[in-house]
Design a protein around this nucleic acid. Structure first.
Lengths: 137, 137
DNA sequence: GATAGCGGTTTACCGAAGGATACCGGTGTG
DNA sequence: CACACCGGTATCCTTCGGTAAACCGCTATC
């Protein structure tokens, strides 16, 4: 643990740019929850709407479109079935988000524990930091 | 690679809840970029504002307050220095976000490459999915 | 004395994100 | 027939995220 993080200004800037790139695609209230829902396998529209608690049809529709445009999910229509069935599937590219989701899931889970029982977890000793360097940022 | 992801509805729901817990704290346009900025060591207000390109003083101020309330960063005032120096530091708890940041950074970086040269990366074979289970979601 | 930097706060304003509700044509169920 | 489910769309409305700009006291610099 205590994974090494960027220290030089260059690394730091590059890191921030990458994070913001990711956030551009995944930002907002619903995109990641929707993707998490799809990690359980293909889902139909209403099914997904029930799973992602609180989302409206309008928002779900909008977010699904954006996710599809970005190649993260796939929309599949079965016209043969009685009431035309539409399923959404996590695309191969969407599955590359597993590490991101896992990191967020793990942190969120730990955070909930942290909120419940703060005292048991506060013991992470303060590491020493470099002096407040006068960076020409 | 191909890290195992939740498959059962229960795991999926728990996963979604955790992700949304994390998003409640980290959501929005600026929080994660600010934290990334602070991974480089303590920063002063204006220094941070220059580093997090595009953020206004008001937003930075607001976001820093929220991050401090949640225990992710620490605000430190040196009253002795000539013009009162204020530094913001990633708290121990904030450092537990390293895996999240690393995952996002890595994905964002890869995504940029993906956008530039799509063809070279599309080769992730479709994995087999469980049938669209009739989940009582 | 004027100007600039620091660490913000305040005011005013705007547009996008998000929410509520109704509705559509189609099908199957009682 | 009435009703509910499906996969959405359309409309209206509110909230919030976010911007721009001025301003504050203080200090150092020209």
């Amino acid at each position: 643990m205590h994974s090494t993080q960027p220290r030089t200004p260059q690394e730091c800037n590059a890191s921030m740019r990458s994070v913001r790139d990711a956030l551009d695609l995944l930002g907002g209230k619903w995109k990641l929850p929707i993707i998490v829902g799809l990690t359980g396998g293909p889902r139909r529209f209403k099914q997904l709407q029930r799973e992602v608690a609180g989302i409206t049809a309008k928002m779900l529709s909008k977010e699904l479109k954006e996710l599809e445009i970005n190649g993260l999910i796939t929309r599949h229509v079965q016209a043969d079935a009685a009431p035309v069935a539409v399923t959404y599937t996590l695309a191969a590219y969407g599955r590359t988000l597993y590490p991101v989701i896992e990191a967020l899931r793990s942190w969120g889970q730990q955070h909930r524990r942290h909120i419940m029982h703060p005292e048991t977890l506060e013991a992470a000793a303060e590491a020493e930091w470099p002096e407040p360097e006068a960076l020409s940022a």
